[in-house]
Design a protein around this nucleic acid. Structure first.
Length: 492
RNA sequence: CGGGAUGUAGCGUAGCCCGGUUAUCGCGCCUGGUUUGGGACCAGGAGGUCGCAAGUUCGAAUCUUGCCAUCCCGACCA
């Protein structure tokens, strides 16, 4: 198998595609804009999902499942939300096929089977969920509702990219209902913290927490909080969002509750989500020209063991020694694969597992067994060392943690080096064109200015960082007074 | 959806301009053997509606038209 990877320097986009496909995370499918997530990629998603799911439950949430289809009349109830998503909705209009009389062996949509009301395939589930919540909420005693769902959604995107933007994608969406505005806002920021914690501590991708400007807000939200990450090519990627929805959906679906004082009040809402897009972030934040680099805490496979056989008689000796190690590793909760397949030689396997980003590789031959050592190679630094067999599992356990930290620190250093301040328009444009990354600059707060900057430079305001330093300044475009800097970048 | 490029075996490709035997080569795959410390070697073998559909022609991978898909650049977006 030829598995040459395009280098980042020669073609960044192709490098990314090569990693996804040759690293066997996903593949193109027969359906436009939709990908097949392959077992290795799905195992990664499962690990991410499990960690997030645990965090959601720790913060009091429960899982439920709502329908894939949303009747058009429900979908259009919250106008801004409907408007925002209308252009990218897949719609079911019929419920039956029949044999095509003019085309034997072929099927056609049965015109007799037209639906009374079209069904929108959910691009997001606020509508169907808030329609449901109407029936669940009568009293303040019914609140809060803290529900999450793991689901697929469809957004008919013009231009798709593996993981980063596919027509169908997997995600989770939390939808909560609260008695007060304060409680809902607290929930919004709490879940943003959950996301930031997960992305930084498990995916090892540093993020900036912030608030979106009005232009960039989720359709139907009062405020959109986000975490923004920086990719190796200097472009920003929105890694997760948490929305304070105010009473917009409660009003659209007439969801009211009785207070202790027997007064009717509209319910306050939040929604928050992360998707398989995070896998794109993971790839672009860490990987190198040799392939993927998986953070140990969510790696589909943490350790691979490659035997170095010398003649038939060496096999049982090595296999036996390795089985001891496998038991030790498993008892430490470490995932391990012993690749003793005979159809590939060691060098091939080394390259293969580097491509797949397995954090630690153990090589063992007779020479090592005689010396009671193994050869240990770490994916992040590509360093190889000879390590004693005694206490090896514990050594590897610690090494995995060290790799996790190292990957994060490296990404953090890169991110921090690539936040630069611009104090004039010329400086701003030059930074965007020559350095990319985040540019911290003053903005006068007007939507119009934001739009003009986007038109001129393709850079958008990624966020207004939380706890942002307040300082007097002048907008880089208009020169109007400004009280704080915001983060600009070109983004995915 | 606008602009550009591409589509030949699982992958990468030659052939196309200038139509004419059985469509080229490498990797991979299968069988047997030798091997194994950074992408092994020998021998034999299988694998193709030349993206799809029309058209031109005695004859189309090659020419024409339409469609589809992918990639890059825009617009849109998690």
């Amino acid at each position: 198998m030829s598995k040459e990877i395009t280098s980042r320097a020669s073609d960044y986009s192709q490098w990314y595609n090569d990693l996804v496909i040759k690293g066997e995370l996903a593949d193109y499918s027969a359906v436009r804009g939709c990908m097949v997530i392959k077992p290795y990629g799905y195992a990664l998603w499962e690990n991410m999902r499990d960690q997030l799911d645990r965090k959601f439950k720790e913060t009091g949430h429960v899982n439920a499942y709502f329908p894939l289809f949303v009747p058009k009349s429900l979908f259009e109830a919250e106008e801004k939300n409907a408007e925002g998503f209308a252009k990218e909705c897949a719609v079911v209009t019929h419920y039956r096929l029949k044999n095509d009389p003019n085309n034997p062996g072929k099927l056609m949509v049965d015109p007799e089977a037209k639906l009374e009301e079209e069904l929108v395939i959910r691009p997001t589930s606020e509508a169907i969920i808030w329609n449901t919540y109407k029936g669940w909420i009568q009293s303040y005693r019914d609140l809060p509702i803290l529900v999450n769902q793991w689901a697929n959604v469809v957004r008919w995107e013009m231009r798709t990219r593996l993981f980063l933007r596919t027509a169908e994608f997997l995600w989770q969406e939390g939808h909560t209902a609260h008695a007060t505005k304060e409680e809902a806002i607290e929930e919004t920021t709490k879940m943003l913290d959950v996301y930031a914690d997960f992305v930084e501590n498990y995916m090892a991708v540093p993020v900036i927490k912030g608030v979106k400007t009005k232009n960039e807000r989720f359709a139907g939200a009062e405020d959109t909080y986000c975490i923004e990450a920086l990719m190796q090519d200097g472009k920003a990627l929105q890694a997760g969002t948490s929305h304070f929805l105010g009473q917009n959906f409660a009003k659209a679906f007439d969801v009211q509750y009785l207070t202790k004082e027997n007064k009717k009040e509209y319910v306050w809402a939040t929604s928050w989500g992360v998707s398989t897009r995070l896998i794109g972030a993971l790839i672009m934040a860490h990987s190198d020209d040799q392939g993927l680099i998986m953070p140990p805490r969510i790696a589909p496979l943490q350790v691979v063991i490659v035997p170095i056989y010398k003649g038939e008689e060496s096999k049982p000796i090595i296999d036996e020694k390795v089985s001891l190690l496998i038991n030790d590793l498993k008892s430490q909760g470490i995932s391990v694969k012993y690749d003793n397949s005979d159809h590939a030689r060691p060098g091939w396997k080394f390259a293969e597992y580097e491509l797949k980003g397995v954090p630690v590789r153990v090589a063992m031959g007779l020479r090592d067994i005689e010396n009671n050592v193994v050869e240990l190679a770490r994916r992040d630094t590509k360093e190889k060392s000879s390590v004693s067999f005694d206490g090896l599992a514990m050594y590897i356990k610690n090494l995995l943690e060290e790799i996790q930290q190292n990957i994060f620190n490296k990404a953090l250093a890169f991110r921090n080096e690539n936040i630069r301040e611009a104090n004039s328009w010329d400086e701003f444009v030059e930074l965007l064109d020559t350095k990319a990354g985040f540019v911290s600059a003053h903005w006068d707060g007007s939507e119009d200015t934001e739009e003009k900057i986007k038109e001129k430079t393709k850079a958008t305001i990624r966020c207004i960082p939380l706890q942002n330093k307040q300082e007097e300044g002048k907008c880089i475009l208009t020169g109007n007074p400004s009280t704080q800097r915001v983060l600009f970048a070109r983004a995915y």
